[in-house]
C-alpha cells in the first residue's frame, strides 16, 4: 500500500513591507483539509534554532489534515525588508496578510500558533483582530516584553564581552541609545527603537485571552514537568476573564535556546493531539 505524505513548498506572498516568505505544509492528497495553521516564529537566533521543531510540528499537523504556513515576518529569515526597519505594527500586518491568504485557500477553521515572542505576537493579534481565529497555540510564550528585551540585551552584551570584544557594549549604554530613538545593533541584529518600545509595552496577562480557544504548552527538562508559577498566574487570570484554556507542561529541552539543534518530540505529540481533539476527531460535531 502506498501511503501519501504531506507535501511542502516555499511561497512568497506580496507583503506591504516586501515579499513575505512562507513554507507551506499541506495534507496528503487522500486526507481532507480540516484546519489551517499560521506559525509565528520567535525572535533573533531563537528563530533559526527552532526551525527544525517548527517543521516537525508542521509536518505532524499536515498529516492529520492541516494546511500549515510557517511565516518569516518582514525583516527576518527569507522575507524582504531590513531587520532594523521591522516594527510590531509591520508584523501585525504580515500576520493579517498571511492569515487572509490561508483563509482563501480553503474554508476551514484557522489556528494561530506562535513560539516565544511569536506567541506573544499571536496573542496580541488575536486580542486585536476584527475576527478571532478558531484557536491559538502558545508555545513557551513570552509573558513580558520588557523582561524579554532585558534578557536579550543582557545575553548579547555578555556574549560580546565573553567573545573578547574589550569594552564591548553594555546594556545601559544600549538603553540610552534606544531611549534617544536611535537604532542599536545587538548580536548581529539591528533593532528599531519603535519595535523595542512596542514590545516592551506588551504583557501577556493584559491581553484578551477569551476570544478563541487557547492551547498553551511549555517544555521543561525535568522528568515530571509542571507549569511555571509565572504561567499559572497568567492562565488563572485569563480563565477568570472567561478564557477557554488548556495548559500543560511536557518534558523536553529548551530547543529555541540550545546551542545544538534539539527536538522536543513530546511537545509535538501533545500539540498534535490537542489540535486533533478540536478539529479532526470532533469535526462536524463541535463548533
Amino acid at each position: 500500500m502506498i501511503v501519501s505524505k504531506p507535501t511542502v513548498s516555499g511561497r512568497f506572498l506580496a507583503g506591504s513591507g516586501g515579499p513575505l516568505a512562507t513554507v507551506v505544509w499541506e495534507p496528503p492528497k487522500d486526507i481532507a483539509p480540516r484546519f489551517a495553521v499560521l506559525y509565528l516564529p520567535p525572535f533573533g537566533d531563537e528563530m533559526n534554532r527552532s526551525r527544525r521543531m517548527a517543521a516537525l510540528q508542521a509536518r505532524a499537523l499536515a498529516a492529520i489534515g492541516g494546511t500549515v504556513a510557517l511565516l518569516d515576518p518582514r525583516g527576518t529569515g527569507e522575507s524582504g525588508g531590513d531587520h532594523g526597519a521591522a516594527t510590531w505594527g509591520g508584523w501585525h500586518a504580515d500576520v493579517a496578510l498571511a492569515w487572509a491568504w490561508l483563509a482563501e485557500q480553503s474554508n476551514v477553521p484557522c489556528v494561530l500558533w506562535g513560539l516565544r515572542l511569536g506567541a506573544l505576537l499571536a496573542a496580541d493579534v488575536v486580542a486585536t483582530a476584527r475576527a478571532a481565529p478558531a484557536a491559538m497555540v502558545l508555545w513557551q510564550p513570552i509573558a513580558s516584553g520588557r523582561a524579554f528585551f532585558n534578557q536579550f540585551l543582557r545575553l548579547a552584551t555578555v556574549q560580546e564581552r565573553v567573545g573578547g570584544a574589550e569594552g564591548g557594549a553594555d546594556a545601559k549604554a544600549l538603553r540610552l541609545k534606544l531611549a534617544a530613538g536611535n537604532p542599536i545593533e545587538v548580536a548581529g541584529y539591528e533593532l528599531n527603537p519603535a519595535l523595542v518600545a512596542d514590545v516592551e509595552a506588551k504583557d501577556l496577562v493584559a491581553l484578551d485571552g477569551s476570544r478563541c480557544q487557547v492551547v498553551w504548552r511549555e517544555v521543561s527538562a525535568v522528568a515530571a514537568p509542571t507549569i511555571s508559577p509565572a504561567s499559572a498566574r497568567i492562565a488563572s487570570r485569563w480563565q477568570e476573564h472567561g478564557a477557554e484554556l488548556d495548559i500543560a507542561a511536557v518534558s523536553g529541552p529548551s530547543f529555541w535556546a540550545t546551542q545544538e539543534i534539539s527536538e522536543a518530540p513530546l511537545l509535538v505529540a501533545a500539540t498534535t493531539s490537542a489540535i486533533a481533539a478540536r478539529f479532526v476527531n470532533h469535526a462536524g460535531g463541535k463548533p
Binding site: A143, S144, R146, A147, N150, Q151, R154, L155, V158, Q159, R161, V162, A171, K172, S228, P229, A230, S231, R233, I234, S254, A257
Partner: peptide
C-alpha cells in the same frame, strides 16, 4: 557556570517566576 551561563540562568529564573532582575 561562565558569565554567559549566568545570564541564561537569570533569564530562566525570570521566565519561571515572572519577575524582572535588574543588573
Amino acid at each position: 557556570l561562565d558569565s554567559m551561563a549566568v545570564a541564561s540562568v537569570i533569564a530562566a529564573i525570570e521566565d519561571r517566576f515572572g519577575f524582572i532582575v535588574e543588573d
